[in-house]
Computed example of a mutant assay.
Amino acid sequence: MKHFFTILGGMGTIATESYVRLINHRVKISKDQDYLNYILVNDAQIPDRTAYIKDHTKENFFFALKDDVEKQSLLKPDFFVMPCNTAHYFYHDLAALTDIPFLNMMDIAVHHFMEKFPKEEKIGLIATEGSIFDKLYENSIVKNGKKVELGGNEIQPLVNELIYSDIKENGYVDGELYHRILRKMHDDYGCNVILLGCTELSLAQEKAPNHPYNVIDPQSILADVTIELALKIRNGMDVDRAVSKYLYQD
C-alpha cells in the first residue's frame, strides 16, 4: 500500500471509531479509490491513561504505545496520528521513538483556537481528570497569552459522567448532559469558546452538535488536517513539506 498513515487508536474504541468515521465521510469521493489509505491500530488493551497520570503506582500506558509505534514504524507510514488527548502526556517520548512525523493533536487544536478566535482572552476547558491534572492544554494555552477556565467543582463530575459512565461504559452519548455542561461553562463561567479535551467529548459533539456554543474539537480538527495532508502527499507533495505546517516548534 502506497502513501498511508497510521492511526494509534483504541483510547477508547468508540471515540476512535468516531475519528475514522469523520475522515471517511469528509473526504470527497466518487469511487472507492478516493478514500484515504491508513492502518488503524485499535489497541484497546492500553492501560487507563488518567489512572497512571494521577498515580504513578498504576500501570504505565507508555509501554503499550511504545510497542505500537515501534512496530508501525517498520511499515513506514507517511505520518502518525493519535486521536486521544490524554495519551499526549507521552507525546514527546513517543515521537522520539521514530523518524516518522507524528502529529500533535493538542498543538494543532490550540493553534486553531488562536487563529479562529484571536480576540478571545480565555477558553473553557473540559476534559478527563488526567488531561486537567497534567496541565498540557493549560500550559500551551497560557504560553500563547490566553487564560484557561476550568469551571467550578460541579463541572468535572458531570464531565466524568458523560465520558465514563455514558460513553466508555455504555456506548451512549447523553446529548442533554453534554449541552448542560456547555451551557454551564458559557453562562456560569463566561466561556465564549470551549475546548473539548477528550475524544469522548468529541464523539458527543459529533452525535449532539445542535447547540449554540463555540467549541474547539481537537478530534474534528485532526480529521480535517489528516485529510489535507494525506491528499497532498498522494498528489505528489513531499511528506516533510506537507507535515511541516503542523509540526509546531513553540
Rank of each mutant, 00 (worst) to 15 (best):
M1Y: 07
K2C: 12
K2H: 13
H3S: 13
F4C: 03
F5Y: 15
F5R: 01
I7D: 06
G12Y: 14
T16A: 10
S18R: 15
I23Q: 01
N24P: 00
H25E: 14
H25A: 10
S30G: 10
K31Y: 14
Y38S: 08
Y38G: 05
I39E: 03
L40G: 03
Q45P: 04
A51C: 10
Y52S: 04
K54V: 08
D55S: 15
H56Y: 06
K58Q: 15
E59P: 02
N60Y: 02
F62W: 00
L65E: 08
L65S: 05
K66T: 00
D67G: 01
D68S: 13
E70H: 00
L74H: 13
F79G: 14
F79N: 03
Y89K: 06
Y91A: 10
Y91H: 15
Y91D: 09
Y91L: 13
A95N: 03
I100E: 04
P101F: 15
F102N: 04
L103R: 13
L103K: 10
M105R: 14
D107K: 14
V110A: 06
E115M: 13
F117Q: 08
F117D: 07
K119T: 15
E121D: 14
K122W: 02
L125Q: 03
A127I: 00
A127Y: 00
F133M: 04
K135H: 07
L136G: 01
E138K: 13
E138P: 08
S140A: 10
G145R: 09
K146M: 12
L150H: 05
G151E: 06
I155F: 08
P157Q: 05
P157L: 09
P157D: 09
P157H: 04
L158W: 12
V159G: 04
E161P: 04
Y164D: 04
D166E: 15
K168W: 10
K168L: 09
E169T: 02
E169W: 12
N170P: 12
D174E: 02
D174R: 12
G175V: 02
E176C: 13
L177H: 05
I181G: 05
L182M: 10
M185P: 03
D188S: 06
C191G: 04
N192G: 11
N192D: 11
V193H: 14
I194Y: 01
G197C: 01
T199K: 07
L201D: 03
L203R: 04
Q205L: 01
E206F: 14
A208H: 13
A208F: 06
P209S: 06
P209K: 10
H211D: 09
P218C: 09
Q219A: 09
S220I: 03
I221T: 11
A223E: 11
V225S: 04
I227D: 01
A230R: 01
A230M: 15
A230L: 05
L231I: 11
I233S: 05
G236R: 11
D238S: 00
R241P: 02
V243T: 13
S244H: 08
Y248M: 08
D250M: 14
